[in-house]
């Protein structure tokens, strides 16, 4: 067990740094909230509607937030609690974090995101790649949002309706890209099953268990109309498969 690494990525000082960054971003949210609330009143919006927007958003967010918390649990074993807490409270998303951490770990010469191979030096490089790699959307806002929104708002509404009725390839591009990513990873787990790939069955078995759990969730969501499960399906499928890995390791 890589105790020294785990102690460094869970140090009290790291918790303090993360708390300060989160405090700043939360303060930013409060400022935007108050400014918009006041502006809403000024343009004649009903106070009840504004309050309802706050309460409905808060209740709507509760369940997905619990799912994000499960994601923090899933990430914390390899990247430590404070960094997982930071990444999933602000800016990140579970899918992005793990993929980028895996890419970055291989770029610095590790076989993957394995605790045994990690050091605080490799962690710092991985964390930097994860941070800068996700700032694309933020930079787009800083440099282009004003111009883009002005252009959007100056469009006649008829044109907008025309555009909305025929979706562009852009809306499918992200799905296509993610299918490509998943294919590469699943392909590598199948490759590991063979003697040339090391005969390691665990990654493929975990992936299959996660897929099976996700299939059950998708069935319940789509066929049994249990829409509330949508928020939990990814994190819960992952945790079920990770639990199976622990059990298989103990049994075998």
């Amino acid at each position: 067990m890589n105790t020294q690494y785990l102690q460094s990525v869970n140090s009290p000082m790291f918790y303090l740094i993360v708390s300060l960054v989160l405090a700043f971003i939360t303060l930013m949210c409060f400022v935007f909230l108050f400014k918009s609330y006041k502006a809403g009143l000024k343009i004649g919006m009903d106070k009840k509607i504004l309050t309802k927007a706050i309460t409905s958003s808060a209740t709507f967010t509760l369940l997905p937030s619990l799912s994000i918390l499960l994601g923090v649990v899933a990430l914390s074993g390899t990247l430590g609690v404070p960094f997982s807490w930071l990444r999933l409270s602000v800016i990140g998303a579970l899918q992005y974090e793990l993929n980028v951490a895996q890419i970055a770990s291989q770029a610095i010469g590790l076989t993957g995101l394995n605790v045994a191979e990690m050091s605080i030096g490799s962690f710092v490089t991985i964390a930097l790649v994860m941070t800068i790699g996700i700032l694309g959307g933020v930079f787009c806002c800083i440099f282009f949002l004003k111009k883009y929104m002005t252009k959007i708002n100056s469009k006649p509404s008829a044109d907008e309706k025309k555009e909305d009725s025929s979706p562009s390839f852009g809306s499918f591009a992200t799905t296509a890209m993610f299918i490509g990513l998943c294919a590469a990873y699943i392909g590598s787990y199948i490759g590991k099953l063979f003697p040339g790939g090391g005969g390691d069955h665990m990654p493929f078995m975990v992936a299959v268990c996660a897929a099976a759990a996700m299939y059950v969730f998708e069935y319940l969501i789509q066929k049994k109309n249990m829409k509330s499960l949508e928020n939990f399906s990814l994190a819960a499928s992952m945790l079920i498969a990770m639990g199976v890995a622990v059990i298989v390791n103990i049994v075998l």
Partner: peptide, 30 residues
């Protein structure tokens, strides 16, 4: 508990768990 040896296989396989679940979701989509 989270850093215990027993749970190590779980955290070492967090990436396969993600792409297994995500793969199923995206593959059945298209």
């Amino acid at each position: 508990v989270l850093s215990s040896e027993v749970l190590l296989p779980a955290f070492d396989n967090v990436v396969p768990a993600l792409f297994g679940a995500l793969g199923l979701k995206y593959f059945i989509k298209s």
